[in-house]
């Protein structure tokens, strides 16, 4: 679970840093951070529903932005929270494509201790970086 919430970056919103050895792992960490912003205990979100998610983007940044945005959309439109992700990313002619199988369940106030509703991903200071040990992202969520 290589992500951490940052305390002094955006005090009115929620900021996190996510990492991974591969781009896929970093995307998974970022997705888990989005769920964990909204639910206190990730383990309380069981794998009862599987959902295929496909997004694309013209950069690794926009791919991550679109992916996280899709998770926020599914939380409101289908009331789904996810705690496991299988992710595959390909790149062709400057277009990045992501295919994911997300596992989770319907949001339930009795089972999930809810924190704060994520409304959008902000592009303010949004970063995807290649590091020595893999990939890193810095994200601010509008709550």
């Amino acid at each position: 679970m290589p992500y951490k919430f940052l305390e002094d970056v955006a005090i009115a919103d929620v900021a996190f840093e996510a990492a991974g050895k591969t781009m896929e792992e970093m995307f998974e960490s970022s997705a888990l951070a989005v769920t964990n912003t909204q639910v206190k205990d990730l383990k309380s979100v069981k794998s009862r529903v599987k959902r295929k998610i496909a997004v694309d983007g013209d950069s690794s940044e926009m791919l991550l932005f679109n992916f996280l945005q899709e998770l926020i959309f599914l939380k409101d439109a289908k009331l789904l929270l996810f705690s496991k992700f299988k992710i595959e990313i390909t790149q062709m002619k400057g277009i990045y494509k992501l295919k994911s199988e997300a596992s989770g369940e319907k949001l339930d106030m009795r089972k999930h201790e809810l924190l704060v509703d994520v409304k959008a991903v902000s592009l303010h200071n949004f970063k995807v970086l290649k590091t020595k040990s893999g990939w890193k992202a810095e994200v601010i969520l509008d709550v």
Binding site: D76, A120, L123
Partner: peptide, 28 residues
């Protein structure tokens, strides 16, 4: 309201520089 914001943020990003020559420091 946030989805409307996000939808148009994506649209603006695709036309801002290419069509209108506007450069900004903060993508948001």
């Amino acid at each position: 309201g946030h989805q409307i914001g996000t939808d148009y943020l994506q649209l603006f990003l695709s036309v801002m520089e290419r069509k209108y020559g506007i450069k900004i420091l903060d993508q948001e």
